[in-house]
Nucleic acid binder design. Structure first.
Lengths: 199, 199
DNA sequence: ACGCGCATGTAACTGGTTACATGATTGC
DNA sequence: GCAATCATGTAACCAGTTACATGCGCGT
């Protein structure tokens, strides 16, 4: 699943500029994928060269022209073909959890900072997901959301909520255990009671 | 967070071969990161060249020698330094969810296959996570788990459980809505009841 | 005055994946 | 007989990130 396919996908919502594609990706796909300008703009150039999208330069006052990209019928076919060839994967790369795993090697402040940074980010996301989708059930261009969009958004909210709850619930006892140091790590009753608390 | 740091980290559990590092990574970090031999072996060679690990070739009967890597004091310092410089991130790249998002463009079988593939994988992971950690509370080398390991493992189990439950719960109604086609996508009572079910 | 939002792009770099190459042992 | 496990590595490739380059308008 490369940025080309993702861009084609975004353009099914209607004509857009590269800048808008990124914004749209961020709004709808934040917990699914990410892409920077450095991969979006070159991808769009390729797509245009292959006639999968058309470009229209729109002049703007006191600003550089913007290029509005639009899906062609061939582009739409290609999108579907690419999606069908895409196998169903789901990968996570979490520096945060690696840091937690090795927390016993790190200064307490670093661990706390790492947790708090993630909690803050996730709370922010959750907050504006709710603001965006809970009130109006519109999708991208004022159109109603497709079942797939609802599925993906619902997934994001559900999993993020669970993750956030876990981290916030564990934070205290986790930090306390680190404080206690390695001598407390032999399998004792304290050890087992934490395991129960971790449910 | 590159494979070098990850490898150093794994070696805190004791001396290991490259092969074992990958296995260890898969067992403990499956829902956190991933790494192939193509990145592990070159990483180990670099680490050895920088004296962050030592190598001992162990002859084996009827097998190629294995190279056992061991963390040096400098390696351990470097690991800690690298971890401290690592900022707390958590990224997801989910072809699965992209596929769901665009499900209305795809044949039903593709969508079903995609869901079932993920469900099967996640159920497998959850199953052998439980087998591994629920019975014995040991970590890697028979040592007790550190609080960080328990945190990370607990996170994995919690989030995976929530994700799996969501997907399995939604599967039926999602597929039915796709069947119904786009004309049912205006905000009706069916729409709203699905949104409630998504909680 | 500073930073953010709009708006587009390039180039170098980084880092991981995939495929290939080799080969014996164990268990079904 | 075939697949899996153990065991190491290389090389080509792919794709995305980061930093840079440009520039105006608006709000604080």
């Amino acid at each position: 699943m490369d940025v080309r396919t993702l861009s084609l996908g975004m353009l099914t919502h209607g004509p857009m500029t590269g800048y808008e594609i990124k914004k749209c990706l961020e709004e709808n796909f934040r917990h699914i994928v990410s892409a920077g300008y450095g991969s979006i703009y070159p991808a769009l150039a390729e797509l245009a060269a292959e006639d999968l999208v058309t470009v229209t330069s729109v002049e703007q006052e006191r600003r550089p022209d913007k290029k509005v990209y639009e899906l062609t019928p061939r582009g739409r076919e290609r999108l579907v073909a690419d999606l069908i060839l895409t196998e169903s994967r789901h990968r996570v790369r979490s520096e945060f959890l690696v840091l937690m795993y090795f927390a016993h090697l790190l200064p307490r402040e670093k661990v706390e900072e790492a947790i708090d940074a993630i909690v803050q980010q996730w709370e922010g996301w959750l907050y504006d997901d709710l603001a965006r989708y809970e009130t109006r059930q519109e999708g991208v261009a004022g159109e109603p959301m497709t079942p797939g969009m609802r599925f993906a958004v619902g997934y994001g909210r559900t999993v993020l909520t669970a993750a956030l709850a876990y981290v916030k619930r564990q934070r205290g006892s986790f930090l306390r255990q680190l404080e206690a140091g390695p001598e407390d790590l032999v399998p004792t009753s304290a050890h087992r009671s934490e395991r129960r608390a971790a449910e």
